[in-house]
Simulated scan of single mutants.
Amino acid sequence: MTADSLVPAAPPAGLNVFSLAGRTAMITGAGGGVGAAVAEAFAAVGAKVLVTDIDKDAAAQVSDRIVAAGGIAQPYALDVCVGADARDAVAAAAELGGGTLHILVNNAGVIAPAMFPKMDEDRFRKVLDTHLMGSYHCSHAALQHLPADGTGRIINVTSAAGLVGTIGQANYGAAKAAIIGLTKSLARELARQAVTVNAVAPLAATAMTASIRANEKLAAKTLERIPLGRWAYPAEIASSFVFLASDAAGYITGQILPVDGGTVI
């Protein structure tokens, strides 16, 4: 065996490395915000998408938009905190793809803000259960359905809060920091199966940031920390997920990609 024999052949000339045609994706928390934008972006470049959300009606609305635009999607009601439900959802996504799930996006999340002296255990656990255990449940269930041909992807969602900390949301910061550790550990483990695992740390105008944007003082302080001086639209965030899901990112794993206007530099 020569060194050159370990280098895969280059893709054919003219191949669209950003296409997801022939691939199936499952996105959690896809009933709105970034998750919905990712679902629509994936479908627009050819993926079949299982749109999951704890709110079935919200998932159905996103799925309907995708189908109306000519894409393939199905809605699915999912509480990621329930392991058995996560396994059923992953199985449904794989069935949509003829037995294979190529891309899992762990996006579901909640917030329960409070300064730490007033942070009770229930509030702390609620956030960790949704973000961290939800990512665990779906990722673990996906293992038997992910292909080992270099197209398997797990994309987690973290936050600047997990990278640099936050005030008033220690539960959220802890959960997002844990997702970074999960991402890097899974990237090392699943590399032997040619599955890449990365995370995106977005900052966008969504329902989760609505309370900040509605508070004049908080909104001004937040914008001061964003070098580009504005919030992103969810669709701007979605393109980074398309990149990480595509062949263009086939040699990238274990990385955290902040898409936050330069907030974390």
Rank of each mutant, 00 (worst) to 15 (best):
Y136Q: 05
A142L: 05
G150T: 09
K126L: 13
A148V: 12
G152T: 05
S139Y: 00
I72E: 11
D120M: 11
E95L: 15
A160W: 06
T151D: 12
R87H: 13
P75G: 04
A114M: 12
G97H: 06
N156L: 14
G83Q: 15
Q61K: 14
G152M: 03
A141E: 01
C81V: 14
I72N: 10
D85G: 07
I155G: 03
I103F: 04
I154F: 03
D64W: 00
T151K: 12
R65Y: 00
V110E: 05
K118W: 08
A141Y: 01
Y136M: 10
L104R: 02
A114S: 15
V82Y: 03
G98C: 12
I66N: 01
L143T: 12
P117V: 11
A92P: 11
R125A: 12
A91N: 06
V157N: 10
I155H: 04
D85V: 01
D120W: 07
A142M: 06
S63T: 00
A108L: 02
I111L: 14
G83Y: 13
A86Q: 05
A112N: 14
M115S: 10
V82D: 13
A89L: 00
G71R: 05
G70S: 07
E121Y: 14
G71K: 09
V110T: 14
I154C: 07
T100I: 15
I155Q: 01
A148S: 13
M115L: 11
L132C: 01
R65A: 01
Q144G: 11
A142F: 01
T100Q: 12
P113H: 09
P147W: 02
A73L: 04
F116L: 14
H131D: 06
G83I: 09
E95M: 14
R123Q: 15
L78C: 07
A84R: 13
R125Y: 08
P75R: 00
V105A: 04
H140C: 11
V80K: 09
R153N: 08
I72G: 02
D149T: 14
A161L: 11
V110K: 08
R87M: 11
A92I: 10
G134I: 10
A91S: 09
